[in-house]
Structure formats: structure tokens, C-alpha cells
């Protein structure tokens, strides 16, 4: 009596039982969160989801699943060279899958589609530009402090560094490093960022309120009648200012590299968490499958019937990996 299958296959199916619960926990949590989150991002301009490549990868996994079935059939018929041939195809297709996946991930990284990185409102997007610009200013200033072109006690105090850099830029003394040429530009970058930062903090229009600090500004504020307000900062003003900064010769390239195009996406962070969690765990399963197929393939021409159960069980596991993707593709890429 007992279950009429080999122990290894029983073990594999029990393992697949736990795997079903593992992936259903993610998929189910995603569906529930999605239902409870009105305004979920579906536009690929927001999510940078590549539907074509998701569909292509679906096709790749289906072909690979077919190859595994043929390989197992060949093993059962003791046609081991054919089995090796089809296992090799499976392995190659797994590499293709991971290659496409890394291309997709690269696209997400280059648009900063990462959990906790995404602005979910215009205000958050403006603050993100502010933070990233500050980081660019720090990096630009580090060029001078690291090269000891200027000597400041506290290199993190950007106002002091900027003042010192201004003195350095106007100095006519000897300069071997050539840093004096770019210094005025970076002093200007600091003041432009400061100006933007103060407008952001005060939430006043960049174009209509010349400065957002100092006695003149405070006097303007004080002169407001009750109920009157200064025009508020618009998202479009910030993007326009960012474009102007990017076109600068001295610091433009640093801003191109260090400041992402502001693009608020409601629920973007939850989307990114779910996308990377589910596709990431799936990719790990693909890698495990490749290790499983590598073992019989490493037998070379010595592959024999001792490996039939192994190929069958690895094949079952591989079909499950395919099965998970069959659900991930419509849920993440289309729905």
C-alpha cells in the first residue's frame, strides 16, 4: 500500500504543494492590495512595464517546458542523446529568459522604478528633485574639496563651501588643476539650487516670486491682505527649471546623471515592491531549475537511465515555474 509513485516524485510533489502556497501568498496579496488601491498605475508610461518582452518571456518558458517534456520522454525511451539535446535547449531558453528579465530590470533601475524611490504626488516629485539636486551639488563641491583646491573645515556645509569656492574662482593666483575654470559654474549651481529649494520650502511660484527668502520677500508676505496668498509653486515650473539646469555646460551632465525626470506615480512604490518581489522570486526559481538541469547535462555522454527520475522531477519543477509565470504575466503586465 501507499502512494504508487517513487519517493522522489512524492517528495517533489509535496514540495510543489508548499510552493503553491508560497506563490499564492504573493499573488493573492497583490490581488487584494490591488482591489483595495483605487488609482493603481496601469499606464506603461508610469510603470515602464514592457508588455512585449513579458509576452516573449511567456513564449520562451512555454517552449522550454515543451523541451523538458520531450527530454523526459526520450529518457523513458532510453534515447539519451535526444534527452541531452532537449535539456540543452531548455538550459539555453532559461538563459534567454533571464537575459530578457535583466533587460527589463535595467529599464526599471534607469527610471528609478524602485520601492521607496518613487514620488506618489507632484509635491513629492518636487521634493525628490530638490534632494537629488542637493546631492549633485555635494558631488560637484567634493571635486574641489577632495582636490584640496579650497580648504574648508566642514566640507558638508554647502553654504561655506560655496562662499570659499567663490573666493577661489575670483582668485587670479596659480592654478594647476584647471578647477578655476569650472568653479564659477558650480557656485552658480549652488545658488540656483538654493533658490529653488527656498521656493519649494515656502511653496511660492518660481517665475512670479523672484526670491523666496530675505527682507524683500518677508516684506511682500507681510503686505499681503487677509485671504491673499502668493502664487504657489507649479510642478511645470520645476520641470522647466530642471531642463534649464540640464543644458548647462559645466554641471548639466552631472544633473542629467543624478536627477531623474520628475514623474509622480500614485501607488508606484507598492507596485515596484510587488513587481520586484514576485518577478525576483520567480527568477530565483528559474536559476534553481537551471542548476537542476545542469547536473544531468554535466554527465555528458554518460547520461543513463539512473537519471530518468531526476529529469522527470526537475521537469515537474520546471513546469511549475512556467505555471507561475503564466499567472504573473497577465497579472503584472496586462491587468
Amino acid at each position: 500500500m501507499g502512494i504508487p509513485i517513487p519517493n522522489s516524485k512524492l517528495g517533489l510533489w509535496l514540495f510543489l504543494g508548499t510552493e503553491i502556497m508560497f506563490f499564492t501568498a504573493f499573488i493573492g496579496a497583490y490581488i487584494v492590495l490591488r482591489i483595495g488601491s483605487p488609482g493603481w498605475p496601469t499606464d506603461t508610461a508610469d510603470t515602464h512595464i514592457l508588455v512585449f518582452w513579458g509576452g516573449f518571456n511567456t513564449f520562451v518558458l512555454i517552449v522550454s517546458s515543451y523541451c523538458v517534456v520531450v527530454a523526459h520522454e526520450a529518457m523513458a525511451k532510453r534515447d539519451f542523446s535526444r534527452a541531452r539535446q532537449y535539456l540543452t535547449y531548455t538550459m539555453a531558453l532559461a538563459f534567454v529568459f533571464l537575459g530578457v528579465k535583466s533587460y527589463e530590470y535595467y529599464g526599471k533601475f534607469s527610471h528609478d522604478i524602485l520601492p521607496s524611490h518613487i514620488a506618489e504626488t507632484p509635491t513629492q516629485a518636487i521634493n525628490k528633485v530638490d534632494r537629488e539636486l542637493e546631492q549633485v551639488v555635494r558631488e560637484r563641491f567634493a571635486i574641489y574639496t577632495d582636490a584640496k583646491a579650497i580648504d574648508v573645515a566642514q566640507p558638508n556645509d554647502l553654504a561655506t563651501v560655496s562662499a570659499q569656492l567663490d573666493v577661489f574662482a575670483k582668485d587670479t593666483g596659480e592654478d594647476d588643476s584647471g578647477l578655476r575654470i569650472s568653479a564659477p559654474g558650480d557656485v552658480a549651481l549652488y545658488s540656483k539650487w538654493q533658490n529653488l529649494h527656498q521656493h519649494i520650502v515656502a511653496n511660492v511660484s518660481l517665475d512670479e516670486v523672484p526670491v523666496a527668502t530675505g527682507p524683500g520677500y518677508l516684506a511682500d508676505r507681510a503686505a499681503l491682505q487677509e485671504g491673499e496668498t502668493l502664487p504657489v509653486l507649479e510642478f511645470a515650473e520645476v520641470t522647466a527649471e530642471l531642463e534649464r539646469l540640464k543644458s548647462n555646460e559645466v554641471y548639466g551632465p552631472a544633473i542629467q546623471a543624478g536627477v531623474f525626470d520628475p514623474h509622480p506615480v500614485l501607488y508606484g512604490n507598492l507596485f515596484a515592491s510587488i513587481y520586484f518581489l514576485m518577478t525576483g522570486f520567480h527568477a530565483i526559481h528559474v536559476i534553481v531549475g537551471m542548476i537542476l538541469f545542469a547536473r544531468p547535462l554535466l554527465q555528458g555522454s554518460n547520461l543513463d537511465e539512473k537519471w530518468t527520475d531526476w529529469v522527470e522531477n526537475s521537469g515537474l519543477y520546471w513546469h511549475f515555474v512556467d505555471l507561475v509565470w503564466i499567472f504573473l504575466f497577465p497579472l503584472l503586465y496586462i491587468a
Binding site: 501568498a25 496579496a29 490581488i31 487584494v32 492590495l33
Partner: peptide, 15 residues
């Protein structure tokens, strides 16, 4: 068991 989890989450988080 797999279906149980989403069903348990649905009343509070989903709807």
C-alpha cells in the same frame, strides 16, 4: 490553504 490567505485579507484590505 493557499486560497485561504487572500480570502482572509480581502475584507479589510481589499474592500
Amino acid at each position: 490553504l493557499a486560497i485561504g490567505l487572500p480570502l482572509a485579507l480581502l475584507p479589510d484590505i481589499g474592500v
